[in-house]
Design a protein around this nucleic acid. Structure first.
Length: 664
DNA sequence: ATAGGGTTAG
């Protein structure tokens, strides 16, 4: 059958180049090529050349040749041209569309190719519109039409499902596999499972799709269970199945299952593709087994950007930043995910300066940041009080419409503004957010709490109660710390009680630490000490630290000693504990105790890093160490500091008088 | 005649 072209496109203009350019690269054009998958032998020399075509320039030359010889008017050859433009890596879907519109009566294959091509170009809606036209214009469809349609349909899978039944493709294996994938991808695991269960025949793709669907939706246990079931079925898992089940192990951190999969791969001689080895490596990384991950890495003959990024991430997550950086530096190729892994490593391990530096390097290297990059660097900005950069990111990327303001990015911005002391900007953003989640509320409440705005924090918590968002124990950390900083003891007690009573949230260690801080800060040291002893779990550094801090405020040396001892059991290297205790003893003029603490410190070789602070003024950082007078404006700085100190003292004095008046 | 369903890193 012939298809008729209405125009020859730009064919002739390219003609003189054809032979010249194609002769530059010797292509085995005269040997018939057998495609083992389809059992098809291509003998036409022009079509053979197309098998080696890599870009549109070459394609157009071939097309010109075909136009001259008339080959282009045949269904099969024009299909090959269309398929190259629509699907090949060097293709051009718009050019494919141009060709398509000039074909008088495209066949099913050509229609399918258009859906698939637009999908590949990530223009799903256009791709799906071709499917819509097929339905309306009653074009004959085959199972592939539905497979491609399901990939392009967005949220309209149910409608496609209806058409599938109507056209009688409901029991086709390929279509069913496509449906399982569609529903799992859309997050409807139960629908996916229904299609899976009702399938009369299942092949390895059906099983793998379902297992991967479970893993992708966070149902790791179900994924592993289904894999177990598969082992009893008559379908043999393959390397892709292994990848799916390994990703479930990674999510669960299930090293036992992960190792047994590794064993299975070795025993059954499963084809160890690069993807499978990457999945194995990442499983070990996610389970915290860096030595095993390194072993896989070392044994790999071929590595790609996934391999290297997993290693960077593994070491970064463990806080081994130098090792992570080494891998990062040694990577032959990086992409935005690799940069993010390293930046996140710095931001989450107390090295915000390095995170910001690397962010700048990344942008300078020509990588456009994505939402996750900004989230990481904003966290670093918060740690550094780097308001200028934080604001710039907000302005440039978000207001400049380079990156959409999603809820996670919004939360990161709120946190950055709050940490930088800019509560008005934080509040403004919070109020404007079209979609808030639990983290948004927690961040904002914690922001108010950290700056002593207890009333606002509690009123926001009240507001939260009237929404669908249920508080968690982090919400209560924020609420309790608001009470603590506002001296609101009875409110704090009430909230602590209501955690279990009203919300069914079992208080965690950090909630107890907040209560201890709340009681201790106001001077109820006995009660705080009682609570720490009553805790159902082992008190951590935050609980004892809160108590020590309270002892410092209220001058209780004995209890401070006890708290410090507990703290030093947990971390003998923390110089802050020694210093706190020694200072308190000095204030109380207990010089023997002071000497004891100092000599203990010396004995243990604890290095005291001098206290320092950092502030950014108009893009420039100023760092101050304790008793440091090297700053050019040192005199003025200390004068203002002294004023502030005097002011706060008088405030504190007034507060104390007030409290005594109220008999607290 | 064509191609086609499942895949790993932040």
């Amino acid at each position: 059958m012939k298809s008729r072209f209405h125009s020859l496109l730009s064919a002739q203009t390219h003609r003189p180049q054809v032979l010249h350019s194609l002769h530059q690269r010797p292509i085995s054009a005269n040997k018939p090529k057998w495609n083992s998958k389809t059992n098809v032998i291509i003998t036409n020399p022009t079509l053979l050349i197309m098998e080696s075509c890599t870009n549109m320039l070459q394609l157009k030359q071939i097309q010109a040749q075909m136009t001259c010889t008339g080959l282009i008017h045949h269904t099969f050859p024009v299909s090959r041209v269309l398929a190259f433009c629509a699907i090949a890596d060097g293709g051009d879907i718009h050019y494919a569309n141009l060709i398509f519109t000039r074909i008088e009566k495209p066949n099913t294959y050509m229609w399918n190719t258009m859906i698939r091509g637009y999908s590949k170009a990530q223009v799903n809606t256009t791709g799906f519109s071709f499917f819509g036209r097929m339905v309306r214009e009653r074009v004959e469809m085959d199972c592939r039409s539905f497979v491609f349609a399901l990939k392009a349909c967005g949220l309209l899978g149910d409608s496609v499902h209806c058409v599938i039944w109507k056209m009688g493709f409901g029991s086709d294996l390929l279509v069913r596999n496509g449906l399982v994938h569609y529903y799992a991808e859309a997050g409807s695991v139960s629908h996916a499972r229904k299609v899976f269960d009702e399938s009369p025949v299942r092949d390895v793709v059906t099983w793998t799709t379902m297992i991967d669907g479970y893993a992708g939706c966070g149902y790791s246990n179900e994924a592993v269970e289904l894999f177990d079931e598969m082992l009893f079925s008559d379908v043999e898992p393959n390397e892709v199945t292994m990848i799916a089940v390994l990703s479930a192990c990674s999510n669960k951190g299930d090293i036992g299952m992960g190792k047994s999969i590794h064993e299975y791969v070795r025993k059954k001689n499963v084809n160890c593709s690069l993807n499978l080895l990457n999945a194995l490596l990442d499983m070990y990384v996610k389970c915290g087994c860096l030595t095993a991950a390194k072993e896989v890495f070392d044994d790999m003959k071929v590595r790609d950007v996934f391999t290297w990024t997993s290693m960077v991430n593994g070491y970064a997550k463990c806080g081994e930043l130098d090792a992570a950086r080494q891998f990062f530096n040694d990577m032959p190729d990086r992409n935005v995910v690799s940069w993010n892994a390293m930046i996140a490593g710095y931001a989450q391990n107390n090295q915000p300066t390095e995170a910001v530096k690397l962010f700048h390097d990344m942008v300078e290297s020509g990588f456009a940041p994505i939402e996750n990059s900004l989230v990481c660097v904003l966290s670093a900005c918060g740690q550094l009080s780097c308001l200028d950069l934080g604001r710039w990111i907000h302005q440039y990327y978000v207001h400049g419409n380079h990156i959409q303001l999603g809820v996670i990015l919004g939360n990161a911005l709120i946190d950055m503004y709050a940490k930088c002391g800019c509560l008005t900007s934080a509040t403004e953003l919070f109020n404007e957010m079209p979609e808030k989640n639990l983290v948004s509320w927690n961040t904002m409440i914690a922001g108010y709490a950290a700056h002593g705005h207890a009333k606002q924090a509690l009123s926001l918590f009240n507001q939260m109660k009237s929404t669908d968002t249920k508080p968690d124990n982090i919400t209560f950390v924020a609420v309790l710390s608001a009470c603590s900083h506002g001296g609101l003891v009875s409110e704090g007690r009430e909230h602590f009680k209501s955690m279990i009573r009203d919300y069914g949230i079992e208080p965690k260690e950090e909630n107890y630490a907040c209560m201890i801080d709340l009681l201790g800060r106001i001077g109820l040291l006995e009660e705080a000490y009682e609570l720490i002893n009553k805790m159902p779990m082992e008190p951590s550094a935050s609980a004892w630290g809160a108590l020590l801090n309270s002892c410092k405020i209220h001058g209780n040396v004995e209890l401070a000693k006890l708290s410090a001892e507990k703290l030093l059991d947990l971390d003998p290297e923390d110089s802050g504990i020694y210093v706190s205790l020694a200072n308190l003893c000095a204030i109380k003029q207990r010089w023997v105790d002071v000497r004891n603490v100092r000599s203990l410190m010396k004995e243990r070789g604890v290095q005291k890093n001098p206290g320092h602070s950092l502030i950014e003024v108009q893009g420039q950082f100023h760092e101050f160490f304790a008793a440091d007078k090297s700053h050019p404006q040192s005199e003025e700085v200390y004068r203002v500091l002294n004023e502030m100190y005097m002011f706060s003292k008088s405030e504190l004095y007034l507060q104390k008088q007030f409290d005594e008046l109220l008999c607290i």
